[in-house]
Design a protein around this nucleic acid. Structure first.
Length: 397
DNA sequence: CCTCCACTGGAAACCTAGGCTC
DNA sequence: GAGCCTAGGTTTCCAGTGGAGG
């Protein structure tokens, strides 16, 4: 039915699409009105307001789990500020980087630099060299910067807080009267424990906490989006409730809730249904999980894929030694140089963090202590992703 | 209570790619 | 263009460890 290409086009041409505006359900969407975050918005606005007077605002930390509105509040306030600064012709730039996507301290600088128009090569410069170029750039133009570092906890846990220290440290000699003001966003409430006291004192000047949304709040948020995104009476109330309660189980994650709604809507539309039902929501939940697994597996480096293939091909739990010997065997037959067991052990831990495998360390007394590794993600999705790699296709038996 | 397995995971050394300086 | 420097990934080295079996 829904697979018929003419039906798909017909639906769109005859205006039978279920959506009015799909973009409302996208992650990057910034609503005109943000529900249940009035306090955080006004506090953040107050903290950042001094930029309008050309003085340096305190650095801020936003804490809260994923999908509690940190990023959207930050972007919303920044957007409003940018509107004002444009009116008053103030020399302020707002820079937003997600440090988990940038992934290394150097890439963060690279990203920040390119947004500011400073020339930073992809590789080759020292950290301090890259930092100097950024400072010189803003010093030369007399620009003040509000820098948002999303998911800073990732950066600090995987590396250290030197970058934060360097960014918060006053560099009067280079930057003149310009300043950099930091807005750090962290998913981890205990994040502060990882910080050096010297960083904490300058960075932790102000902090805002974002509590998880309650089921009722999620429902209100979703209803709001439904009104903007879908045609009237398309989405069943029960479907909205289900999205809200599924997301509430994931510690009140609004992003998850909105994703569910979008995917459910797309599934319903593809089926040619004129209603989005709880059934579509359930299907959406499964489909999102499959996509997540597929994407995670597909983007792994070759040797991580090989390790994953070994785990996937076994029906029972394996320990690190078993995984390594099978992995080494595969490398041998395909003429690859195997990585060391130490490295493979780390790769297994990385797969665990990605939620593809479960690998707790179990002690079996006399029989040693090792990780007990088993696949937890959908086997089909993993295999599908692995088959996309040419090297793997020839190996999978 | 002690042993001893099969690792774990921290730390440092090493390697490579790529820009920098002269 | 040679030689230097750095970041990021990997290897090397190794002290440390939870608990079944003695």
């Amino acid at each position: 039915m829904g697979n018929d290409i003419d039906t798909i086009f017909d639906h769109i041409l005859t205006g039978k699409s279920l959506f009015i505006d799909r973009d409302v359900l996208r992650n990057e969407y910034i609503p005109d009105h943000i529900l249940f975050r009035d306090d955080q918005i006004s506090q953040l606005a107050q903290i950042l307001a001094p930029v309008l007077m050309r003085s340096k605002p305190s650095n801020v930390f936003l804490y809260g789990k994923t999908g509690t509105g940190k990023t959207v509040v930050a972007r919303y306030v920044l957007k409003k500020l940018a509107e004002r600064t444009a009116q008053h012709e103030l020399n302020i730039e707002f820079v937003y980087t997600n440090t988990r996507i940038a992934s290394t301290p150097y890439h963060v600088l690279f990203e920040v630099g390119s947004q500011l128009g400073a020339q930073i090569p992809f590789t080759g410069l020292s950290m301090s060299g890259a930092m100097r170029r950024i400072f010189e750039r803003i010093g030369a133009s007399g620009t003040n910067i509000v820098l948002v570092l999303d998911e800073v906890d990732y950066l600090v846990k995987n590396f250290d807080d030197d970058l934060l220290y360097d960014l918060t440290r006053p560099n009067a000699d280079i930057v003149g009267s310009s300043f950099i003001s930091l807005v750090g966003i962290s998913n981890d409430l205990k994040f502060k424990e990882y910080l050096d006291p010297r960083v904490l004192s300058s960075l932790g000047e102000e902090e805002l906490v974002f509590p998880p949304y309650m089921v009722g709040e999620l429902e209100a948020i979703l209803s709001d989006r439904v009104r903007l995104a879908f045609r009237p009476n398309v989405v069943a109330d029960t479907a909205v409730k289900l999205c809200a309660s599924l997301a509430a189980m994931e510690h009140g994650d609004a992003r998850r809730a909105v994703d569910l709604l979008r995917v459910a809507g797309e599934l319903a539309e593809r089926e040619g249904s004129d209603q989005v039902t709880t059934d579509h929501v359930m299907k959406a939940a499964r489909s999102i999980e499959r996509d997540r697994v597929y994407e995670a597996a597909r983007s792994l480096p070759l040797h991580a894929k090989l390790v994953l293939a070994v785990v996937t091909s076994s029906n029972n739990e394996l320990n690190t030694g078993q995984v390594y010997s099978r992995y080494a065997e595969i490398c041998k037959t395909s003429g690859l140089t195997p990585l060391t067991q130490r490295r493979v052990s780390s790769i297994i831990s990385e797969l665990d963090v990605l939620g593809l495998v479960n690998a707790p360390v179990i002690s079996s007394g006399r029989f040693g202590r090792s990780k007990k590794i088993k696949l937890v993600a959908s086997k089909d999705s993993v295999i599908k992703a692995l088959r996309e790699d040419d090297v793997l296709t020839s190996l999978l038996s």
